[in-house]
């Protein structure tokens, strides 16, 4: 039964990442309960490594340097887990040399120069902008009309005065 399962090809599908979710669940159960399955899997993993060794390429040093920089950064980030600073003592020096305490951080409420507004305001501002432009156009139009009318009135007045004479 177990040998039949091992021979079914599911293990090969698993190590190549081509097994279905159900097959993976089943295999993990079988692996946990049957050492033979676990041994067979380890052998397959060796086979996979063997294939990879055949095609192995040594990465150039520059590649490793670029990878190492990021890994170092990750490791540093992982170990630093500061607690929140809770209080101060009157004697200032004690604040720097508290025994058995790791790194601490002080929560600072920064004053932001930005404010959050509802997305609806975007349309309101757009409408105000468009209306502003329309009013400006109307204002210019009526100003010019008015100026023209004033000019015509002046001309009529001049003509009338000439006629009276």
């Amino acid at each position: 039964m177990i040998q039949q399962y091992i021979n079914s090809g599911i293990l090969e599908a698993y190590v190549t990442g081509s097994a279905s979710e159900q097959e993976i669940r089943e295999l993990l159960y079988m692996k946990a309960n049957h050492p033979e399955v676990n041994i067979a899997l380890q052998e397959l993993e060796k086979d996979m490594e063997l294939i990879a060794q055949q095609m192995a390429i040594t990465p150039p040093e520059r590649t490793w340097n670029r990878i190492a920089d990021t890994i170092d950064e990750l490791i540093l980030r992982q170990t630093s887990n500061p607690d929140q600073f809770t209080g101060r003592e009157d004697n200032n020096y004690k604040n720097f040399t508290k025994p058995d305490t790791g790194p601490q951080y002080i929560e600072v409420e920064a004053e932001s120069n930005h404010m959050k507004v509802h997305k609806l305001w975007k349309w309101v501002f757009a409408a105000v902008f468009v209306l502003g432009k329309i009013f400006l156009a109307f204002a210019i139009y009526f100003y010019l009309e008015n100026r023209q009318a004033q000019q015509q009135l002046k001309e009529i007045k001049t003509e009338l005065q000439q006629l009276k004479r």
């Binding site: 090969e12 067979a40 052998e43 086979d47 063997l50 294939i51």
Partner: peptide
């Protein structure tokens, strides 16, 4: 397909002189 995949691994296994499981 599984059988073909398994056969592929059998070829690898047979050529590394280790037939402990397959």
């Amino acid at each position: 397909i599984r059988l073909l995949l398994r056969e592929s691994f059998t070829i690898i296994r047979n050529n590394r002189n280790d037939t402990a499981v397959h």
